[in-house]
Computed example of a mutant assay.
Amino acid sequence: MDQIEIIRAVSNVMDALGVAVVSLGMLWGLFLFAKDLYTQNSSEAYKAFRIQIVRSLILGLEVLVAGDVIRTVAISPTLMSVGVLGAIVLIRCFLSWSLTLEIDGRWPWQPPPKNE
């Protein structure tokens, strides 16, 4: 097995790990939602469910970006592939920021409210 095949296998593992993080996070969120419906009102259970889903999506996106970076930099570092990687990273960063806004109610670069 040569070096390129090893790097490709590592990037494939990173992609699979990213999908697993999102999938398991969703399943865990559903489990906690079902559990919280018995102990809390449905509004609080839903808010906790949304936060769990968003957290798993953010973490999964980060792992998927890492897999893309490994694949692009190590296997095919052409100008076109780096440009495509840049576009993918920009889109995923925007998604992560949007999801953070969904959780915190503020952009990541804004200071937290005084009452926190």
Rank of each mutant, 00 (worst) to 15 (best):
D2C: 06
Q3F: 05
I4T: 14
E5H: 06
E5P: 01
E5T: 13
E5V: 11
I6C: 00
I7E: 03
I7C: 03
I7Y: 04
R8L: 10
A9I: 12
A9G: 05
V10Q: 04
V10G: 01
N12K: 09
V13F: 05
M14G: 09
M14Q: 11
D15F: 04
D15M: 11
A16K: 11
L17Q: 05
L17E: 04
V19S: 01
V19Q: 03
A20R: 06
A20C: 08
V21N: 00
S23V: 15
G25T: 06
W28Q: 14
G29V: 11
L32M: 08
L32G: 00
F33L: 12
A34T: 11
K35V: 07
N41M: 04
S43V: 15
E44D: 09
A45H: 01
K47N: 05
K47V: 14
A48T: 13
F49L: 13
Q52I: 12
I53Y: 00
I53A: 04
V54H: 01
R55D: 08
L57S: 07
I58C: 02
L59I: 14
L59T: 14
E62K: 11
V63R: 01
A66R: 10
A66W: 04
A66Q: 05
G67I: 15
D68S: 14
D68R: 15
D68W: 06
V69R: 07
I70F: 06
R71S: 12
T72Q: 08
V73P: 00
V73M: 08
I75L: 13
S76R: 13
S76F: 07
P77A: 11
L79C: 05
L79F: 11
M80T: 15
V84T: 11
V84H: 02
L85R: 05
L85N: 08
G86N: 08
G86L: 14
A87H: 03
I88G: 00
I88A: 04
V89A: 07
L90A: 12
L90H: 01
L90E: 01
I91H: 02
R92W: 01
R92A: 02
C93I: 15
C93E: 07
C93G: 03
F94T: 13
F94I: 15
W97A: 13
S98R: 13
S98W: 04
E102A: 10
E102V: 12
D104F: 08
G105C: 08
G105N: 04
W107E: 11
P108I: 10
W109R: 10
Q110C: 08
P111F: 02
K114L: 08
K114S: 04
